[in-house]
C-alpha cells in the first residue's frame, strides 16, 4: 500500500501537469517537492495556519489537509500563477504598497485567501476582512498591513471592474 504509486494528471496555474504520488502523499508535499511549486508554504501541516492555501477550482483549500490524488483532474492556482505577464495581481500589489508582509512565509496563503475573499465580498468592511482572514496566521506583521492591503485591494479591484464595464459599454 505504501509503496504503491499512482499516476495523476492535474492542471496547475493553467498548465497541464502530471506526476506520480503515493496514496498518502499530501498535496502540499506533491506541489512543493514533486512539481517544484515552492511558493506553497507549510507552517503546521494540521490545517490551522493557512500558509499552504491554494485555490482548487477557484476555491481556497489547505493543501496540507488533502492528498495529492484528490487533486486528480482538478485545476489548481498557486501563488506562482497569480501574476499575469509579470504584472502583480492587484492583491499582490496592495500587499506591497501597504507593507502587508515581512518574512513572506504566510504571504502566499494570505494573498490567495484575500483573492477569494474579495471575489465573494467585493466591498468588505474592516471587520469582515479581519474575520475573513482569521483562518491564516501571520507571526510578523500584527496583521496591520495585511488588513490595510486587503481593504485597498478590494477598492482597486472594484475600480478596475467598473472601468472595464465602462469600456465595454462605450
Amino acid at each position: 500500500m505504501f509503496g504503491e504509486r499512482i499516476a495523476l494528471d492535474l492542471e496547475v496555474n493553467g498548465k497541464p501537469l502530471s506526476g506520480v504520488a503515493e496514496p498518502r502523499t499530501l498535496l502540499s508535499d506533491f506541489l512543493r517537492h514533486n512539481l517544484g511549486f515552492t511558493g506553497v508554504h507549510v507552517g503546521c501541516e494540521h490545517g490551522v495556519c493557512g500558509a499552504c492555501t491554494v485555490l482548487l477550482d477557484d476555491q481556497p483549500v489547505r493543501s496540507c489537509l488533502m492528498f495529492a490524488v484528490q487533486a486528480r483532474h482538478h485545476s489548481i492556482t498557486t501563488i506562482e500563477g497569480l501574476a499575469k505577464g509579470g504584472e502583480m495581481h492587484p492583491v499582490q500589489d496592495a500587499f506591497r504598497r501597504h507593507h502587508g508582509l515581512q518574512c513572506g512565509f504566510c504571504t502566499p496563503g494570505m494573498v490567495l485567501t484575500a483573492v477569494d475573499l474579495i471575489q465573494r465580498e467585493p466591498d468588505p468592511s474592516e471587520r469582515s476582512v479581519r474575520e475573513g482572514m482569521s483562518g491564516n496566521l501571520c507571526r510578523c506583521t500584527g496583521y496591520e498591513g495585511i488588513v490595510q492591503a486587503v481593504l485597498a485591494a478590494a477598492k482597486d479591484l472594484k475600480r478596475q471592474s467598473q472601468s472595464n464595464r465602462t469600456e465595454e459599454t462605450q
Binding site: R32, T38, I79, R97, H99, L101, G104
Partner: peptide, 20 residues
C-alpha cells in the same frame, strides 16, 4: 520607497527558504 526591495520576490512566491 513604496514597499521594500524584498517584496516582489516574496509576493511572486519566489522566496528561497530552507525547505526550498
Amino acid at each position: 520607497i513604496e514597499g521594500r526591495l524584498e517584496d516582489a520576490r516574496l509576493l511572486f512566491g519566489r522566496g528561497r527558504y530552507i525547505d526550498d
